[in-house]
Amino acid sequence: MNTNAVTQTRNAPVRAGLSRSQSERLSTWFSYLLLVLGSIVILVPFAWMLSTSLKLKADVYIFPPQWIPKPMQWHNYVEAFTTFPFGLYTYNSIIIVVFVLIGTLFSCSFSAYGFSRLNAPGRNFIFMVLLATMMLPSAVTMVPIYLFFNKLGWVDTFLPLIIPAWFGSAFFIFMMRQFFMGIPYELEDSARIDGCSTYGIWARIMVPLSKPVLVTVAVFTFMGTWNDFMGPLIYLTDENKRTLALGLSYFQGSARSAPDLHLLMAASLYAIAPCVILYFLCQKIFVKGMVFTGVKG
């Protein structure tokens, strides 16, 4: 688990001897069967969502369901957008995500460098405390942090959703520290000889070298922030400041004013889309890169 940890994916063990035997082939086919079945279970809900979102209102409540709506009601998406300002909500979500991303990447890599390379009394103790907070349910801190931001007058602004990201996150610091520890000291030493300060080393050597881990952290942060519901629910009120997740939950409304399901599904699909697109763009990072999160330390 060293330098190339991120891209390191060893293939599954190839067992010697039995390579082409019949039982092997049978088990392969059986695996395929299971994989295909599993994929269906995973993908059908999406299809269901898409199908509902394209139906006429009256066709939603038909049993057994009709999978391919005819005619396709693309108009539903327009309608969902005109009843609710999802464009504005998307913009808000993006603003928050961008600032959270910058804050997380900066603060985590900055701190992680301190924890991994610079000897300071008490460092390991602080790090252990930091790791211990990963066990802490956010529900415990929810009320005092709300009161704190309320005192600052930050309620109903984006700040309570953004600022905490600027102060590191235990898990990501842990990840980055692991990564930094794998970078050979020689690189730093030679930079130091060239007159680079510690900050210069961080900025010019560590950060560029840790691109893979930064991307991973960025992608996870994006997903987490984009999907966050409780934060916006607690802190945001103003109609013009709602995030997509919050707007969507209000779109669901109350019993008195439940919206139509086809519109709700159209809006939900829209809310999910950025995550899905990002996922497919970065799937290598997810599926291969996860290896290095190195649970084993």
Binding site: F106, I126, L130
Partner: peptide, 23 residues
Amino acid sequence: EALDGYVFMTPAILGLLFFMLGP
């Protein structure tokens, strides 16, 4: 080095104080 170390750890330490231990 220790001084630099603390500077680098500052975000995490402040985060720990303000958003974890303090609350």
